[in-house]
Design a protein around this nucleic acid. Structure first.
Length: 137
DNA sequence: GCCAACGTTGGC
DNA sequence: GCCAACGTTGGC
């Protein structure tokens, strides 16, 4: 079991939409580092869902329901997508400034490299964010 | 709207 | 293969 964080502008694709759709294709990744992380995802892995630009906070937990496959929007084999389903919202959203100010989260990828849209989360970080989000997994 | 950080492109 | 120029992202 691995943990991840994905980032989306709510204008483009919001947590609410994922909840509504129940299962969505996570597409549009056009960055090799993010893609490599995407391809490392395993079915059942858990994923924090972060809203960039608007909100700038982690709002919920999703899970990988289908491992990486060819992005149907592109030819060739450069780009991949996964399918995600919502698990539950956080009881309390965890904003970026809290992530930044929390000592045990100072090494989080999202904090150190804010542009990476798919990044790994360690188990320690996962548990700490759940604690900050007043949520039990 | 600005700008820092990062990725990508293309000339050499 | 290097690196300058350019484009994009996202926090502020």
């Amino acid at each position: 079991m691995n943990y991840w964080l994905v980032k989306s502008e709510p204008n483009e694709f919001s947590w609410d939409r994922l909840v509504k759709e129940k299962r969505s294709m996570w597409d549009g990744i056009r960055n090799y580092a993010a893609r490599n992380n995407l391809r490392a995802m395993k079915e059942g892995d858990l994923v924090f869902f972060y809203h960039s630009n608007i909100g700038k906070e982690i709002v919920g937990i999703a899970k990988v329901v289908k491992e990486a496959y060819q992005d149907p929007a592109t030819g060739g084999e450069n780009w991949s997508v996964v399918d995600l389903s919502p698990v539950k919202p956080l009881n309390k959203n965890v904003p970026l400034n809290i992530l930044k100010s929390d000592k045990s989260l100072s090494e989080m990828k999202i904090v150190k490299q804010s542009r990476l849209s798919v990044s790994p989360v360690t188990q320690e970080e996962w548990l700490r964010v759940l604690e900050l989000g007043e949520t039990n997994e």
